[in-house]
Design a protein around this nucleic acid. Structure first.
Length: 878
DNA sequence: CGATCCCGCCACATT
DNA sequence: AATGTGGCGGGATCG
């Protein structure tokens, strides 16, 4: 090619070397055969790879066929690269037969091009940021590895980090499930909270004190704080069911470290996190964990040097904002990444100050509203103070290998995280592609609603009664403002707004969603009072450990409220309504049993874990609520009442409302909503009615086990929470004939006894694991405790129990799905193919990633808009 | 030339 | 035993 090219071009456009060479080298290289100047061109220029320039030039100048070739190559790339596509990130595989080309390209891909970050970008590019909930995208490590042209080992790195942020989850060996960023904000929030607890003080301290002090502090900390506290709450779901072995398994370190690492950023108030500090804290922390032995080494090797990793807020705007506590940011937080600093707004002082950043590996966690948190590795940080101390150290000691390793983690995480962010940015940048769940950088954007929602959703009720009693619904308390107000028709009947994800239930205790179901069937199978009680207990037990663990999350959560101004009114409202400090209560979770904390244990697969995690995320406030309620022990009477009510109500058709609107939507699930009676906590059950009668069956056994496709939601939450997922929904859409789906139809979960009022979402959809253990792993010793006062201990137990109960929560995301049909003409089908195909497509067919991306964007956008509307509408209850 | 971090061997875990 | 995972040392690259 080059030759060819050259022959043609050279004469026309004597560029670069040629002219120079000729003139200068005339004498020097006479020997050189003028006829084969090829070498010159061909040979990699001595000058730095200016790939872009050269490539462009060559391509543009090239003959048509050459262009074609180029195109081919381009297409061949499995993934479209980031905007700076020009970077000749060359393909690791040169398919093109053209030898010349190969040579040209062969310039070994430069390390950058092989970087983990880039690889991660490619990886992420393959999957939709906000996949439809129904579509379960599975990722085959091998496949991806081959497609991306890297060894599988590398993929593990990526996946591990992504998993830490719950963008993916491990389903089986070699198989991961792509979840996208639907829950990212929640994940971050959770991490933040956890981080606050775990590292808040440390971070603060470190960031404000001298190093020597730091150490002391650490020591102190260690002494004062029980190990348990240090336990990672991180792996909400992950710590698998398997066994201690699993926990102890070091392999999770990257994952956990990643989470911790992220936490540090979320917690950091200074906006700057030095690698040094991060390493110290993380190392310190890891010591407490199971694998100490191993990590101790590292700890001892705490490095004193090395580049600094820092996060800074790039506040181009209000200075005040910049100062605001991190917590205020969180609602809008999302992970960003950044691979290169050449980004447009690179005007940040930091970039200049930190040359290291240009290296490309920087990750950030950014807040939409305020600014951006930037993580950078830096070599020469001039203007900022925090680093100085560390820097010195750097020079003083040779970095220990251990430390380096530690650092490596960080860098890995950074790289990967960066990628995530990039993607997000892409999405956000494009107005049309906003995800409902995504956070928009624009303050006030309602897209945030989801995040905050959880809190609002599970407001802590001071008195159970008021909350529940409100006959007309949602009206009074916390309940959600959003829908009803707007949607309610004059007659007060609940109506379904076109895009409304859920209904508002005026006063009926029993409700049918998505009409057309036979409650009878359901009723028949409805659990007896006792069962209900048990169920409740179960539900409570099911509360994700992470949730339980949150103890003083309120610290951050509440403070953040102010930031809510930007949030959709609906959200605000909810928050306000639930005046009670949400998080105050959270019992302190005993983290002693890491396992317990982890997730529902028995046979559940990672997928389930994920779900659990989601659950956790979805109802961050849940624990608190539970706790609160716990203060007010539920007595059996209440429970009975509750159940009775339910029973009574059921028959009364008058109270039942069927929304026909929903019928329009093909895939809408039908749920039977059982409104909790007064005095009962905020606990709602939504039973999927469209299930086969058999699907719903409650086991009468002592061990409360429930096999029902249903969604349980706190009453308060109902209104504003776009919950609900039904297995049915997914099936039609699901392109993947996953056996798992079928399993979803009837989910079997059991909750043991703690009877807190913890809200639980159970989504069958999410159950991916075919092997749901039929046997409730409820600890026999933990009978259902209808009434309980959650004490830390109890909570703990709760956590433990939870472990045993495989509970899945439906992701709010489902909402989207429901909405989709109505709001957007797009059929899931049309959308889905894009993504999936992309996955399997040959490189050549990948050419249109953009296309599918777009479609995706549209969808999401629609959904988001819908949601937004929803939120807004809810806003004005008054 | 020191700092990074990619590569891929290999140990450990799981199937 | 085979295969999946990922820890970690070595050395190529980068700045």
């Amino acid at each position: 090619e080059n030759i060819f090219d050259r022959s043609r071009m050279a004469p026309k456009t004597p560029i670069k070397n040629e002219p120079v060479d000729l003139s200068k080298q005339k004498g020097c290289t006479p020997e050189r055969n003028p006829i084969t100047p090829v070498k010159l061109v061909d040979r990699p220029q001595p000058d730095p790879w200016t790939p872009t320039a050269n490539l462009k030039m060559l391509v543009s100048a090239a003959s048509p066929d050459m262009r074609d070739r180029e195109k081919k190559k381009e297409l061949f790339r499995p993934i479209e690269n980031s905007e700076q596509s020009d970077t000749p990130d060359s393909l690791q595989y040169d398919m093109v037969d053209d030898s010349t080309v190969d040579e040209f390209e062969k310039q070994r891909p430069s390390r950058k091009q092989k970087s983990l970050g880039l690889l991660c970008q490619k990886f992420l590019a393959r999957y939709p940021s906000y996949p439809l909930s129904t579509e379960k995208t599975t990722i085959s490590l091998d496949e991806v590895a081959s497609i991306l042209g890297v060894e599988r080992r590398r993929i593990y790195d990526i996946v591990n980090v992504l998993e830490s942020l719950h963008l993916v989850s491990r389903v089986a060996k070699n198989q991961y499930c792509w979840h996208g960023r639907h829950n990212l904000s929640q994940t971050l929030k959770t991490l933040q909270e956890a981080g606050e607890l775990q590292y808040g003080e440390l971070m603060t301290f470190f960031q404000h004190k001298e190093q020597d002090l730091e150490y002391k502090f650490v020591e102190r900390k260690k002494e004062t704080i029980p190990d348990s506290q240090f336990r990672p709450l991180l792996d909400f779901s992950e710590s698998d069911c398997t066994s201690a072995s699993a926990n102890s398994r070091k392999d999770k370190s990257l994952r956990i470290m990643s989470q911790k690492f992220v936490m540090l950023f979320l917690v950091s108030k200074t906006k700057i996190v030095t690698l040094d500090i991060a390493a110290k804290i993380l190392i310190e922390d890891t010591q407490d964990t199971v694998d100490h032995s191993k990590f101790k080494n590292r700890c001892s090797a705490i490095p004193r040097k090395a580049g600094l990793l820092m996060v800074t807020w790039e506040d181009k705007r209000h200075h005040s904002e910049r100062v605001s506590p991190p917590s205020s940011f969180f609602p809008h937080l999302y992970v960003l990444s950044m691979t290169s600093y050449d980004e447009p707004r690179g005007h940040s002082p930091t970039s200049d100050a930190m040359p290291g950043m240009q290296r490309g590996a920087c990750a950030l966690y950014e807040t939409c509203a305020t600014g951006k948190q930037r993580l950078t590795r830096h070599a020469s940080f001039n203007d900022t103070q925090p680093c100085e101390g560390t820097r010195r150290k750097v020079s003083s000691e040779p970095s220990s290998p251990r430390r380096e390793r530690q650092d490596e983690y960080c860098s890995k995480m950074i790289n990967l995280a960066a990628v995530c962010r990039q993607k997000i940015e892409e999405d956000t940048r494009n107005p049309s592609i906003t995800s409902p769940l995504s956070l928009l950088p624009v303050p006030g954007d309602s897209d945030f609603c989801v995040n905050p929602l959880p809190q609002a959703v599970f407001p802590v009720v001071q008195a159970d009664v008021p909350n529940l009693s409100v006959p007309n619904g949602i009206g009074s308390q916390a309940l959600h403002p959003s829908t009803p107000a707007a949607s309610k028709t004059e007659n007060g009947k609940p109506t379904l707004l076109p895009n409304q994800p859920f209904l508002c239930f005026p006063s009926s205790s029993l409700f049918m969603l998505c009409g057309g179901l036979q409650e009878d069937n359901l009723r028949e199978t409805l659990p007896t009072t006792g069962d209900m009680a048990n169920r409740r207990a179960e539900a409570q037990a099911a509360v994700p450990p992470a949730a339980c663990q949150k103890r003083s999350s309120h610290k951050c959560a509440l403070p953040s409220v102010p930031a809510d101004d930007e949030e959709p009114a609906a959200k605000k409202q909810t928050v306000e309504q639930s005046d009670v400090p949400l998080s105050l209560v959270v019992p302190k979770k005993p983290s002693e049993s890491p396992k317990a904390e982890s997730t529902p244990g028995n046979g559940c697969t990672s997928a389930e874990h994920l779900e659990a995690f989601r659950l956790d995320l979805a109802s961050p406030a849940a624990p608190e609520a539970a706790d609160k309620e716990s203060t007010k022990p539920l007595n059996s009477q209440e429970q009975e009442k509750w159940s009775q009510n339910k029973d009574l109500d059921e028959p009364s058709s008058g109270k039942e409302h069927i929304s026909k609107e929903n019928t329009n939507q093909p895939f809408l699930p039908q749920y039977l909503y059982v409104r909790p009676t007064a005095g009962l906590s905020s606990f709602n059950f939504l039973f999927s009615t469209n299930q086969a009668p058999g699907a719903i069956s409650l086991a009468a056994s002592q061990l409360p086990s429930l096999s029902v496709p249903c969604v349980v939601v706190p009453s308060a939450a109902l209104a504003s929470f776009p919950l609900v997922c039904s297995p049915t929904i997914t099936s039609p859409l699901s392109p993947v004939p996953d056996g798992s789906f079928s399993a979803a139809a009837s989910m079997n979960f059991s909750m043991s006894g703690l009877a807190s009022t913890t809200p639980v979402f159970i989504g069958t959809t999410t159950v991916v694991t075919p092997k749901v253990s039929p046997t409730p792993s409820v600890d026999p010793q933990q009978p259902a405790h209808p009434t309980l006062h959650l004490s830390p201990v109890l909570t703990r137990s709760c956590g433990a129990v939870k472990l045993d109960s495989p509970v899945c929560m439906g992701h709010p995301v489902t909402l989207l799905k429901l909405q989709q049909p109505s709001s957007a003409p797009l059929t899931p089908k049309s959308i889905r193919p894009a993504c999936h195909e992309a996955f399997f497509k040959t490189p050549g067919s990948l050419g249109d990633p953009v296309a599918w991306k777009k479609s995706e964007g549209n969808l999401t956008r629609n959904a988001s808009s819908v949601q937004r509307r929803l939120e807004i509408s809810g806003t004005s209850p008054d």
